[in-house]
Nucleic acid binder design. Sequence first.
DNA 1: CGCTTAATTGATCAGGGTCAATCGTGGTGG
DNA 2: CCACCACGATTGACCCTGATCAATTAAGCG
Lengths: 214, 214
Amino acid sequence: MTKPLPAQPRYIPAPRSPGMVGTGLVVGEGQEIFAQGAVPHGFFRVLSGVVRVCRVLGDGRRQILGFYAVDDVFGLDFGSERQHYAEAVNDCTLLSFRRRAVEALAQENAAIGQQLFLYAMQDLVQTRNHVQLLGRRSAAEKLAGFLLALSLRATDRHMVTLVMTRQDIGDYLGLTIETVSRSLSQFERQGLIALSNIRDVHLLNLPALEEISA
Amino acid sequence: MTKPLPAQPRYIPAPRSPGMVGTGLVVGEGQEIFAQGAVPHGFFRVLSGVVRVCRVLGDGRRQILGFYAVDDVFGLDFGSERQHYAEAVNDCTLLSFRRRAVEALAQENAAIGQQLFLYAMQDLVQTRNHVQLLGRRSAAEKLAGFLLALSLRATDRHMVTLVMTRQDIGDYLGLTIETVSRSLSQFERQGLIALSNIRDVHLLNLPALEEISA
DNA sequence: CGCTTAATTGATCAGGGTCAATCGTGGTGG
DNA sequence: CCACCACGATTGACCCTGATCAATTAAGCG
């Protein structure tokens, strides 16, 4: 977070998106995409990389509200000011959509409104699953659930890459880095996973993980 | 939950709703409104009473995903089958909207689609706040936040009625009934709240509660 | 006025937070 | 090219909060 940031977001030629035209942009690792408290000017779709959406609490702690990967839409937050902020977990390419333009489009084209609704619903589904994870009592259950959720989006269900830090995972699951680390180590000792390096997790026993996740 | 249920939902003359026409119905306390795993046929708006939306987990535990009160919309869950179920916390009157009908309307009338989007966004805001509550470490923080959230919707910010049971609160916050009860007692001892009876909570010191909630 | 269910309170114990030290790894500069 | 440095991750020791088990109290209802 306190590291030399790659200057400003860099804009790139815009790919197409169904109905709406977005502006492509590149965001470097750790860079902020929008700030909490700012006026929401639009939303984003991830083309590559991973984004974290967070909320800072009164006492300075951070709650991560979600990780957004390829094809995910984030930044749907159309109040007077943003209730959360977004940062690039790693280098990202994004499509940005201006709120005003999209809303104007939605006035005329019913399909656009439906598309927006769909985006919100997808976010809702993800957020509900997040609630479920956070509601689980034990750290092992939370972490197993988290790994399984990642595996669902991986090309190979048995290979998961933790692009985010342990701190990120902790702030997502309501745990400390130590507990995240300990739980992972325990899974490894139990032969449920293998950590070839810090980021790459080999899920050796999916059924067992599902059992733990309950 | 295992108590004599007031037969079937009873249908009532339908009030108006902006753009869409809903069907009014009455649901008795504890009665199920829709089942987890069922095909979603529509969504609902609360006219009176409180609804809980829950998910049953593999091991039988229950996570409450949200409480829905007057004017709230719930049941937006348009996959192939419902990922959660809904029950009346107390006697409720609801407006139900058929998915098919609304979707057909949304094809032609852009305003309907936008309304749907708004409903989803409101649910999303609520669910994100829920995530924030669940992410907090201590039971006192969770409970203080819960009480404050309720107070925001109360006619008098200092008087909150817990229509749901302690078990409900626990399943919402990821705590046991005992911890919920103990935390409330502690707040009372600290002079932060007063419990005239089991349901009615007088918030004596909102700033202090906000401090705790952080 | 009992009976049933919800809520409170108490005692005990374990899981996870906290503090602290160590390890590992990638990046930088001599 | 290697040594050093900085930061992230791991591991350990200890303690505290909240889960668990159990008993008691309170409240609604027939």
